[in-house]
């Protein structure tokens, strides 16, 4: 096994565990410090996915749960971008999954009791593999904002949850994609778990007129950056090397 490690995660760029304005984090945050590990095969390797794992329609949320000849109600959008590492290199063949509420802010989940209705033609989840250039795209409807029980009057900005694998378990990441210009973004206690405003900006998809399909769908671009990797290692004697 080739020795190569991922760059250390910048824990001051990510949100800390305890962020009291996001109330659920208070009882769900470890109090002891994390124990820091240097990379070993357990962290450097991770699951591998292929085209056999998914269906081609899985990245099309306009179609993947709709009745034949019908489609969901809402603003039709393309969400696309590249998965890169911190060196700016594409991450090809990696699994990208997403889930979201419908145009009214309602999730198709039995625990969601918000009074906005379910859309019969919208499931709200999708998945795809990046191509050889690290590129991915989804077609969906823009999700609506929804209220949640945090403060008395808290509303999540429109967002799409995204899950990305990379090539090693240490790159595993779940995040949320927001939309340019949404005035709810900077009011949100979950967004504001992130201390650095530049880091928050990294989660805001940009309106991408060049990728918009005239008379069909608006496009947003959202690039995702996973941890980069050293090509040389200071400790040069891992097992098998």
């Amino acid at each position: 096994m080739k020795p190569a490690e991922f760059y250390q995660r910048d824990r001051e760029w990510h949100p800390p565990a305890l962020t009291p304005d996001y109330k659920t984090s208070v009882s769900r945050s470890p109090q002891y410090a994390l124990i820091s590990l240097q990379g070993s095969p357990s962290e450097i390797t991770g699951p591998v996915f292929g085209q056999n794992d998914i269906d081609p329609v899985d990245n099309d949320l306009i179609k993947n749960y709709a009745q034949p000849g019908e489609g969901p109600i809402g603003e039709r959008i393309i969400l696309h971008g590249r998965v890169l590492d911190e060196n700016g290199r594409p991450v090809p063949g990696t699994l990208v999954e997403l889930w979201q509420a419908n145009a009214g802010g309602r999730y198709r989940h039995k625990k969601d009791t918000y009074l906005a209705p379910i859309d019969l033609n919208f499931g709200g989840c999708g998945r795809t593999l990046t191509d050889e250039n690290g590129y991915y795209y989804f077609r969906t409807v823009k999700p609506g904002a929804y209220p949640w029980r945090n403060w008395v009057n808290s509303w999540r900005p429109a967002h799409i949850h995204m899950s990305i694998f990379g090539s090693g378990f240490a790159q595993r990441l779940i995040t949320q994609c927001y939309f340019e210009g949404d005035p709810l973004i900077h009011k949100c206690p979950i967004v504001n778990t992130i201390p650095d405003p530049d880091a928050i900006d990294q989660l805001i998809a940009r309106l991408d007129m060049n990728a918009t399909i005239p008379l069909d769908s608006i496009a947003y671009k959202f690039d995702i950056v996973l941890r980069g990797r050293r090509s040389t290692l200071f400790e040069n004697r891992l097992e098998g090397n």
Binding site: R9, D85, N87, I174, T175, I194, V225
Partner: peptide, 13 residues
């Protein structure tokens, strides 16, 4: 270098 995309909670759903 690029910065790693910041994490967010997976949320209730």
């Amino acid at each position: 270098y690029l910065k790693e995309t910041p994490s967010q909670t997976a949320g209730p759903y």
